[in-house]
């Protein structure tokens, strides 16, 4: 591709809408992830324990807290409150998840990531699918990264508090 004469002109118009897509997309990810675990907190704890990186009792606490934190992150992103901070925390969590999956992979553990429920156990005769899980999380990480760089999006509490109109003026 050669130079885009219109690119610089289009970017400011497109960016807010990419931003709200990223925000709502990441919100949906967290809401789904949290909702899929919340009805069986013991299974969520087992999923964390299956990574074998912390003592069982700590894993159960993390496993019980995680779905609620995920739901809260989803709601904060949905309404657009403190977008930069929630995107940052999302990114940190995703990096932790990717690291965990990669480490389980490298140690030869045969587990399910438990990302969207399942208690860390593989279903019948299922092989672990570490690579797709990691790629998926990296995709989510891109969304978080976008919001970290450009946290101001239309229809957000952040914008409302700042007295913005839908048209976002930046910097």
């Amino acid at each position: 591709m050669t130079a885009h004469p219109t690119r610089s002109g289009r970017w400011p118009a497109v960016r807010p809408w990419l931003g709200i897509a990223a925000r709502l997309g990441l919100a949906a990810v967290w809401l789904l992830a949290g909702a899929s675990k919340i009805d069986d907190l013991a299974a969520s704890g087992r999923a964390v324990n299956a990574y074998q990186v912390m003592p069982y009792d700590l894993a159960t606490v993390i496993g019980a807290a995680l779905p609620f934190v995920e739901l809260a992150l989803g709601v904060l992103l949905l309404v657009g409150l403190a977008t930069r901070v929630t995107a940052g925390i999302s990114a940190v969590l995703l990096v932790v998840f990717v690291t965990g999956i990669a480490s389980a992979w490298s140690r030869g553990l045969a587990i399910d990531c438990g990302c969207f429920g399942s208690g860390g156990q593989l279903a019948a005769g299922q092989a672990p699918s570490y690579l797709p899980e990691i790629l998926r999380d990296l995709g989510f990480l891109v969304l978080a990264g976008f919001l970290l760089s450009w946290p101001r999006t239309p229809f957000s509490v952040d914008g409302w508090l700042a007295g913005d109109t839908v048209e976002v003026d930046d910097e």
């Binding site: 704890g45 159960t60 606490v61 019980a64 779905p67 609620f68 934190v69 409150l81 700042a162």
Partner: peptide, 30 residues
């Protein structure tokens, strides 16, 4: 703007911490 950002950030973090504690409490009661 700075003050507002700080307070919304604090509020978000508090919400997340409370959410985690609720999860722990629910699990302990179950």
């Amino acid at each position: 703007r700075r003050t507002r950002t700080i307070w919304t950030s604090v509020a978000a973090v508090v919400v997340l911490v409370i959410a985690g504690l609720i999860g722990w409490a629910v699990y302990s009661s179950q």
